[in-house]
Write a protein that binds this DNA or RNA. Structure first.
Length: 268
DNA sequence: CGCTAGTCCTGTCTGC
DNA sequence: TGCAGACAGGACTAGC
């Protein structure tokens, strides 16, 4: 579910938990833990030093160089709750009890997400591509990774080993903004198109963050607030609706198992 | 090595 | 109202 702007928003709303002392960590589903390099029980008594983001991952840094890495998969949510028990909330796999009586709940119905208890975040991120909002993600880098690639440009944008954080919504939106068809072979993009695409990716992601993410169905930040970027979508989820630019109906086509939305008039 | 297709899950919506 | 089938914001991996 959550892509870079949504995870960034969750990270921002979780800042109110920084400094809080962990009373206990409750792992209700052991199979949600992908890796444990230390005993999570040892986190009790320490405090949360920071909460950051890498790609679509949340990084919770505790004392003593102990990290909890969280990936929310397709349906994951993080709640910062002050209630002892949230009624009607199922599929909560992890609860971090804080000594101020708040708790961080990790819910994930489909369980495509997971968590890692590691002493060094690099072991999880070793193969990850550049952050698209960093200065190193630029025309030179995109030129280098599209070179000779015979995959659809959209497939490349979704490849987390190349660029980390772009998902199905923002890939479609960035390609519409750049006026490039998602089916175009990556290696066929010219310098001009690469330049526009870099700019479009950054612009769309920044707008998504500005709007606190996209809520199509169940996305919420850790304060349970929905995002607002769904009101600004140009193509995603707008199949057969009029293109905001030219008025022609938006097309939908499956590319690499993912539904893709585009305007066949505006995008070439 | 690069790439495609199948797989992991549950919930919700659509059409019969 | 019930039920089958499609579909969903992600990402691994077997196999070509």
């Amino acid at each position: 579910m959550p892509e870079l702007p949504e995870v960034e928003t969750i990270k921002n709303t979780l800042q109110s938990a920084v400094g809080a002392v962990v009373q206990a960590i409750e792992i209700r589903r052991q199979d949600y833990v992908r890796r444990a390099d230390y005993d999570p029980a040892g986190l009790s008594g320490g405090n949360i030093a920071s909460v950051t983001r890498r790609g679509k991952y949340l990084v919770v840094h505790f004392h003593n160089d102990q990290y909890l890495i969280i990936h929310l998969g397709m349906s994951g949510r993080v709640f910062l709750s002050s209630e002892v028990d949230v009624p009607g909330l199922s599929h909560v796999h992890v609860v971090i009890h804080l000594s101020d009586h708040r708790q961080i709940l990790l819910q994930d119905p489909r369980r495509f997400g997971g968590i890692w208890f590691v002493r060094e975040p690099g072991v999880v991120f070793s193969h990850m591509g550049l952050e698209p909002l960093s200065s190193s993600f630029n025309v030179r880098y995109l030129t280098q990774i599209v070179q000779n690639r015979r995959v659809a440009i959209k497939t490349l944008l979704l490849n987390q080993n190349m660029i980390s954080g772009i998902g199905n919504i923002y890939a479609d939106e960035a390609l519409f903004s750049a006026r490039i068809l998602p089916t175009r072979m990556a290696g066929s993009l010219n310098n001009h198109e690469i330049r526009i695409l870099v700019r479009s990716i950054k612009k769309v992601l920044r707008a998504g963050i500005e709007q606190r993410g996209t809520t199509l169905r169940d996305y919420r930040d850790s304060d349970n607030r929905p995002g607002g970027f769904q009101n600004y979508l140009q193509v995603y989820g707008r199949h057969q609706q009029a293109c905001h630019r030219c008025g022609q109906p938006i097309q939908r086509q499956v590319i690499n198992q993912r539904s893709s939305h585009f305007c066949s008039v505006c995008q070439k």
